Simulated scan of single mutants.
Amino acid sequence: MAKIKDVAKYVKSKNAGPFWTTLEIYCETFEDYRIISQSKHLTKETVARLYDTDAEAVKMFYLENLKVVKISYPRKKPQGHKYERDMHSGQQYVLIANVEI
């Protein structure tokens, strides 16, 4: 079965302030966007499980005109915490990129 990384043009993650991380899934075509945005596997519950957070806190935005799915979730540890291991959240995209669609 195909994964998000196989369909999306780019999958990125970034810091969204000291307490949040944002994931962005960019698609090249509207068909790719439709496939990803309508996937039954891309849910708040999936994000919560992958990033060990509460599903009710996960925010998902579907930006059809831009062909982007944007997901934000609270960080487990604030940016700069002594046990926080990805200061800029730049490596967090890997988990979502490997979700089957």
Rank of each mutant, 00 (worst) to 15 (best):
I4V: 15
K5E: 10
D6I: 03
V7N: 03
V7E: 02
A8E: 05
Y10I: 04
V11N: 00
S13C: 07
K14A: 13
K14I: 03
K14R: 15
A16Q: 07
W20F: 15
W20A: 11
W20L: 15
T21I: 12
T21P: 04
T22D: 13
T22Q: 15
T22P: 08
I25R: 10
Y26T: 06
E28Q: 13
E28W: 03
T29L: 06
T29S: 14
F30Y: 13
E31H: 10
E31M: 08
D32R: 08
D32Y: 08
R34A: 15
R34P: 00
I35S: 11
S37K: 12
S37D: 08
Q38M: 11
S39P: 07
S39I: 07
K40Q: 12
L42S: 08
L42A: 06
T43I: 07
T46S: 07
V47Y: 04
A48L: 01
R49N: 06
R49A: 09
L50G: 00
L50Y: 02
Y51S: 00
T53C: 14
T53S: 01
K59M: 10
K59E: 10
K59F: 02
M60E: 05
M60S: 05
M60Q: 04
F61I: 14
L63Q: 09
L63K: 11
E64I: 13
E64C: 14
E64M: 15
N65H: 15
K67I: 13
K67M: 14
K67L: 12
V69C: 09
V69P: 05
I71C: 10
Y73H: 09
P74Y: 11
R75D: 03
R75C: 07
K77A: 04
G80S: 08
H81N: 13
K82I: 14
Y83D: 15
Y83E: 15
R85A: 06
D86E: 03
D86Q: 05
H88F: 14
G90V: 02
Q91F: 10
V94R: 11
L95C: 03
I96R: 08
V99F: 05
V99L: 03
I101N: 06
